[in-house]
């Protein structure tokens, strides 16, 4: 083990340079100050830390605070997007791993990887044209009366998919991140020993029972892993709401941070919000790690 430890050096150096240092810079800005001309002044020494912005950010995020509404909206959008992603991703991953055979499986796997070839931003930009009133996607949706259906149940207001519709943002998030969920799910499902399912069936479990008692528990770590993998970037996402809507009505916490950091007067506040968001996400992460450890233990 020790002999090969040096192999980790490049990775550790990379992490140190591009994660730890960068993250500490955000910490230093968040616990720093802002000059009268709105330049952030990082406080690198923890003894000099200024807690004013952190307290303000905390105050903003608590009920009744300036960013409380945005935070709730973000939770709602991400929650719905995760649920939809799972509803779409799990059956796909399940089919590819357990039922697709031979050539079909290879083709399907290639198709699952295909979205990674195009950058997230480009794929989102494509939608701004596709969902435009004259866009192919909008015309197809209208031809299938899906817009009327959505309008009837209150998911769409007016006829413009890109005109500040929450549903467009949520579907945009699903579209953007679902490939990142399917791949780890596929890997987890593919690893499940077929014989365990057969044993369950032999012992009298119905197909649904075998799925519920064997497949589902065994894919829990992979499912959670996939959820963590897409939930983290979703929480920080700001360009999906920007491109799919651009209206403050659908702003997410990432937009708030982006506005604070890009041109606003309180860059330190943006950094402090980032740190609080990270802290919040860390809780998710810890839960995932705990599940993972328990699974490894058994």
């Amino acid at each position: 083990m020790r002999r090969w430890g040096w192999l980790a050096t490049p990775g550790l150096a990379w992490l140190a340079a591009f994660f730890l240092v960068a993250f500490y810079a955000i910490v230093a800005v968040g616990f720093g100050n802002v000059t009268d001309v709105y330049e952030p002044v990082p406080h690198w020494n923890p003894l000099d830390w200024n807690v004013g912005y952190m307290l303000q950010a905390l105050d903003d995020l608590l009920p009744g605070g300036r960013s409380w509404g945005v935070f709730l909206r973000t939770l709602l959008y991400v929650g719905l997007a995760l649920a939809l992603s799972l509803a779409i991703g799990y059956p796909v991953a399940y089919y590819v791993s357990r039922h697709a055979r031979g050539r079909t499986k290879v083709v399907l796997l290639v198709l699952l990887v295909a979205p990674f070839w195009i950058s997230y931003l480009m794929r989102m930009f494509a939608w701004t044209n596709l969902l435009d009133s004259q866009g192919y996607a909008a015309q197809a949706l209208n031809a299938l009366s899906i817009d009327s259906l959505f309008r009837a149940v209150g998911l769409l207001d007016g006829d413009d998919w890109l005109g500040g519709q929450p549903i467009a943002v949520i579907l945009g998030l699903v579209y953007g991140y679902v490939p990142y969920l399917i791949l780890p799910l596929y890997a987890a499902l593919d690893r499940i020993d077929q014989r365990l399912i057969e044993a369950a069936r032999d012992l009298g479990a119905s197909p649904a029972g075998a799925f519920r008692r064997v497949v589902l528990p065994l894919s829990k770590a992979g499912t959670l892993g996939g959820i963590v993998l897409i939930a983290l970037p979703m929480f920080g996402d700001y360009y999906t709401p920007d491109l799919m809507s651009g209206s403050p009505r659908t702003a997410m916490i990432g937009n708030t941070i982006n506005n604070a950091v890009q041109g606003g007067p309180d860059k330190a506040l943006g950094a402090a919000l980032t740190l609080l968001l990270s802290l919040f996400l860390l809780v998710f992460m810890l839960y995932y790690l705990r599940v993972l450890r328990r699974e490894e233990g058994t």
Partner: peptide, 25 residues
């Protein structure tokens, strides 16, 4: 809400002792 930069000054003036350990510059 009061701007954070100002609240920091207020903190300095009034509640410095509360955060004595943080060493507000």
């Amino acid at each position: 809400n009061e701007p954070s930069g100002l609240s920091r000054r207020r903190l300095l003036a009034g509640a410095g002792a509360l955060f004595a350990g943080a060493g507000l510059a």
